[in-house]
């Protein structure tokens, strides 16, 4: 299973919801990877609080073995109780102080916190590689599925589980919904558009041009009929896709990556049945799905059923993080 992660240098761990066992997954990966590689662990935004700020349930800490690089901010760094060596202090500040890169010298627990923007996270990752890190694990914070963007991470581990819903079939469909979006085809036509620019662009068979600054509030659907391929750098919303469907517009709609898609699998399928197509510039490498059968409120679901149902639809490993953890 870890072999699948061998070829990737930046791996993002994201949770479908809060308390899906993302931190346990991270700890599990740390344990597995640290014996073979120099690992660095970072996050975007604040995470790893001892108490979950929303549900006030206990959360496990990130546990570091010696010689692991970690990224946190000044306030959290000062609260740690194990020995670590400082390598870098940023000039810029987050709400909880400057960003610090350090290396654990002993085993210990840490609260991760990180740069507040994706660009900054990219820079910190570069620093980590310069300092000698071989693998970077990113802890995607609450509602920060964006750290799994293929523009940041080479591989993604998805944590799902009981906290998503009481209904096991809902958990399955929500998980598969995200997996579907992560697996959308990569477009063959990215060369038609300048990907560094923001906006809504169209290609009419001859050249590409900017149609609007964004698809929000875009209403000129007649105009769209002259384009075969369009690209939006921003979010794909449900209202926009519905309008495309209602106006019977058939085209290839390119989105930056799955993290920009805010419509469901069913919406996408409907659009495709009507002759449209949704593609992405880049696709994440989903490597592993972990399942946490315990909900923060104490009930437990049938993990084996859940794993088998998800496994039917995907060809990557799906594991119960709690069971694996006990075996280690």
């Amino acid at each position: 299973m870890i072999d699948k992660l061998k070829k990737y240098k930046v791996i993002s761990v994201v949770g479908l919801e809060k308390n899906t066992g993302k931190t346990e997954t991270l700890n599990y990966l740390l344990k597995k990877l640290c014996s073979k590689y120099v690992v660095a662990v970072t996050s975007i935004g604040v995470d790893g609080e001892e108490k979950d700020q929303i549900t006030f349930t206990n959360k496990p800490n990130i546990i570091l073995d010696p010689n692991t690089f970690f990224v946190t901010t000044e306030n959290f760094f000062k609260r740690k109780t194990f020995l670590s060596e400082i390598y870098y202090v940023s000039k810029r500040k987050t709400a909880t102080g400057r960003v610090i890169i350090a290396k654990s010298l002993k085993r210990g627990k840490i609260i991760l916190a990180g740069p507040s923007t994706m660009e900054w996270l990219k820079k910190i990752n570069e620093k980590l590689f310069n300092l000698g890190a071989e693998k970077i694990l990113i802890d995607g914070a609450l509602s920060r599925i964006s750290s799994a963007s293929p523009f940041i991470s080479e591989a993604v581990v998805l944590a799902t589980g009981a906290s998503v819903s009481l209904d096991i079939n809902k958990i399955i469909s929500k998980t598969l919904d995200l997996v579907y979006k992560m697996n959308l085809t990569v477009t063959k036509f990215s060369y038609l558009f300048d990907n560094s620019e923001n906006g809504f662009f169209g290609y009419n068979g001859k050249k590409s041009e900017k149609i609007a600054n964004s698809i929000l509030n875009f209403n000129d659907f007649e105009k769209l009929k002259s384009y075969g391929i369009v690209y939006t750098s921003g979010a794909l919303t449900k209202s926009f896709l519905s309008k495309l469907i209602n106006n019977k517009i058939k085209l290839e709609l390119i989105v930056k990556d799955f993290s920009k898609i805010f419509v469901s699998k069913d919406d996408i399928r409907l659009f495709e049945t009507l002759g449209g197509k949704i593609t992405v510039l880049k696709k994440p490498n989903l490597c592993l799905i972990t399942v946490n059968p315990l909900s923060p409120y104490g009930y437990k679901i049938d993990d084996e059923y859940l794993i088998s149902k998800i496994s039917e639809q995907v060809d990557i490993p799906v594991i119960n993080i709690r069971k694996v953890d006990q075996n280690v």
């Binding site: 760094f77 400082i86 202090v89």
Partner: peptide, 8 residues
């Protein structure tokens, strides 16, 4: 000074 100050 704390550890971070001394580092700098």
């Amino acid at each position: 000074l704390d550890e971070i100050d001394l580092f700098e």
